[in-house]
């Protein structure tokens, strides 16, 4: 059976939409439990950390170039760089290093 692009699109959109909007519609009251509030406070950092490592080392073609980019991003972030500054610094370092190696 040949599959239809529009049905794929509808499924992708529908599932993504529900995972995002349902919790906003369902959870209307402030959650009282201190454990759950703490848990939710830590979630974004845990999600971003897990998405970044170790995937970032395989995102730039070569591991040494990516590692240099990570080092540059860490330094830029510690120095108080904005989202944009840190991202551009990492990218520029990866570009230069991958030209050198």
């Amino acid at each position: 059976m040949k599959h239809n692009y529009w049905i794929y699109l509808l499924i992708m959109f529908g599932v993504t939409y529900l995972t995002r909007v349902a919790p906003l519609v369902i959870f209307r009251k402030k959650i009282q439990s201190r454990f759950i509030r703490s848990f939710l406070y830590y979630i974004p950092y845990a999600v971003l950390a897990a998405m970044t490592f170790p995937a970032v080392f395989f995102a730039a073609g070569s591991v040494p170039a990516a590692a240099a980019g990570v080092a540059a991003a860490v330094i830029a972030a510690l120095m108080g760089g904005s989202l944009f500054t840190v991202a551009v610094t990492a990218s520029a370092v990866v570009y230069v290093v991958s030209l050198l190696i």
Binding site: Y42, A49, A65, A73, V74, A77, L78, S82
Partner: peptide, 28 residues
Amino acid sequence: SLSQALGIMIYGMFMAIIIPAARRERPV
């Protein structure tokens, strides 16, 4: 080489969010 360098941008943004917070707060 340029498109590969761009691949790391999104992770740079992630690090810019988690690193300052981790430095500020031990539990993070």
